[in-house]
């Protein structure tokens, strides 16, 4: 018997235990719009739950998508009380980190701050630290801290995302090596660091514990899932396939693909649209064959930029009810210009 997966986001929306949802794909395929839409639908359909949408993409556009300014602290979306957004700014976080580490009286801290800021992939590391912070918050007894049921990540383009997901294991390896080195050079470090050594060890042990937990959570399909976003073009599909294969190597659950910017131009008079739609359909057929057990959600290309909550609501409903080119054709040009 052939079971085709439901081409909607229903599984994720009704999933009770999901804590982390990653949305990622090649640059320019509509990741931010998709992640915002997913977050909006989660918040609308589960009003008793609290959601947080974090952008880890260095080129943030969550503020543009919601038409509301977001910063490094979570801020509630106007008109949707149970959804908050934040944009992690790697450069300012790095400056804060450097400032906290820089102490003119301690040359080791200064060197450490300098070295840290020049490490490749430090952007992802800071995004990851943010995840750690939220894990801590979820466990905290402090009632003033908002505890989010699910955190949606609007990730950076593919390469960054994979580096971000590799971080727990990289960090684990790094900490293991660090422990080994400090074991061998303990006396020398005592001379240089003095009392700070124990403090540093405690910090590292704390981070390692959290990293291990995150690793475990990211690999648990009951807690974490990944949504791939792509457009119906060769390179985008190729990169999506690579991303899926890599995610499977990290034992991450991935069973949803959003195919964006589809023209659905069968009844259209525009010849160019029809030609492009023919090409899109060719790749869609191939995708249907390749990803038959995935939730393949086909989203339309709308007439305007999807900005602001009302527009996001209009667009995101197609995540739950597949777009019908005849019934829903008015929606295409109903998007308000901002």
């Amino acid at each position: 018997m052939d079971f085709a997966a439901d081409p909607t986001l229903n599984d994720i929306i009704t999933h009770d235990t999901l804590r982390w949802i990653f949305v990622g794909g090649k640059g320019g395929v509509g990741k931010t719009t998709s992640s915002s839409s997913v977050a909006v639908q989660l918040a609308l359909n589960n009003p008793t739950k609290q959601y947080l949408l974090i952008s880890t993409d260095p080129a943030h556009n969550l503020s543009d998508a919601f038409d509301q300014k977001f910063g490094k602290d979570a801020r509630v979306v106007e008109g949707l009380d149970n959804l908050s957004c934040m944009e992690i700014d790697p450069s300012s976080t790095m400056e804060e980190f450097s400032a906290s580490q820089s102490d003119s009286s301690d040359p080791i801290n200064n060197v450490l701050a300098e070295v840290t800021s020049s490490i490749p992939g430090i952007d992802e590391a800071f995004s990851f630290m943010e995840v750690l912070k939220h894990i801590k918050n979820q466990k905290s007894d402090d009632e003033t801290i908002v505890k989010y049921d699910t955190i949606v990540f609007d990730t950076a383009p593919t390469g960054h995302t994979l580096r971000f997901l590799q971080l727990p294991s990289t960090l684990e390896k790094l900490l293991g090596k660090f422990n080994e080195i400090t074991g061998k050079m303990g006396s020398l470090l005592s001379m240089m660091g003095g009392d700070q050594k124990q403090e540093m060890f405690n910090k590292l042990a704390d981070i390692k514990e959290q990293v291990t937990e995150v690793n475990k959570q990211f690999q648990d399909p009951e807690l974490t899932t990944f949504i791939c976003v792509c457009i119906s073009e060769f390179l985008s599909l190729y990169e999506t396939e690579r991303l899926i294969q890599d995610l499977m190597k990290y034992n991450m659950d991935v069973n949803t693909i959003i195919v964006n910017q589809l023209l659905f131009a069968d009844e259209d008079e525009c010849k160019r649209c029809q030609a492009r739609w023919k090409m899109q359909r060719k790749y869609l057929d191939q995708m249907d064959e390749l990803y038959e057990d995935y939730h393949l959600i086909k989203m339309p290309l709308l007439g305007n930029e999807i900005r602001g909550l009302p527009n996001l609501k209009k667009f995101s409903k197609f995540l739950l009810t597949p777009y019908d080119p005849i019934k829903d054709k008015d929606v295409v040009f109903s998007i308000e210009e901002r």
Binding site: F234, L237, Y238, E241, Q286, E289, L290
Partner: peptide
């Protein structure tokens, strides 16, 4: 041709991997 037979091409890539 990867572009004309994307599904078959990708399935072969998966087998190669």
């Amino acid at each position: 041709s990867a572009q004309d037979n994307y599904a078959r091409w990708t399935k072969l890539n998966r087998r190669l991997d």
